[in-house]
């Protein structure tokens, strides 16, 4: 069965990442899940690895993180022609309306505030997951 896009959790709080992973599993999602501990790690993943073409990804992005924060990660991903269609869900404890507005302007798919209602969250991921193959542009430079 098609397990959908790989979910990349970017969160400096290990507990939050475990909760997200376990609750998505409990809610019945069987996507592959990877955890990145700060914004720099996820940027390194996307901008230094060259074998991304075969996979689809969905990013769950926290905002307040050491090194590079989530808004900067969102900005860099959305400014890149290769990654700008990547679905990004902002998942954060911040409810500042200006922050929400800014993320939407930068092009995040969904903005969700922690703590999360996981059943609805899993449903949102399923729906976005179904769209991912349509959203991703064909990788450049391949025959």
């Amino acid at each position: 069965m098609n397990q959908g896009p790989t979910i990349l959790i970017v969160d400096d709080d290990e507990g939050h990442a475990i909760l997200i992973r376990q609750n998505l599993e409990i809610a019945g999602l069987n996507n592959r899940i990877e955890h990145f501990r700060d914004g720099q790690a996820i940027l390194d993943f996307f901008f230094t690895r060259r074998d991304l073409a075969d996979e689809t990804y969905l990013v769950l992005l926290d905002i307040r993180m050491p090194k590079v924060d989530g808004i900067e990660v969102l900005r860099r991903l959305k400014a890149d022609p290769e990654f700008r269609k990547l679905p990004v869900i902002m998942l954060t404890t911040t409810e500042d309306s200006r922050e929400v507005e800014r993320c939407h302007q930068l092009g995040c798919s969904v903005y969700i505030q922690k703590p999360v209602d996981y059943d609805r969250f899993a449903e949102a991921i399923r729906r976005i997951g179904l769209l991912v193959p349509l959203l991703l542009v064909p990788p450049l430079g391949l025959p």
């Binding site: 939050h16 909760l19 922690k114």
Partner: peptide, 8 residues
Amino acid sequence: SPLVNVQG
């Protein structure tokens, strides 16, 4: 943030 962990 810690509250999310306590609750979760």
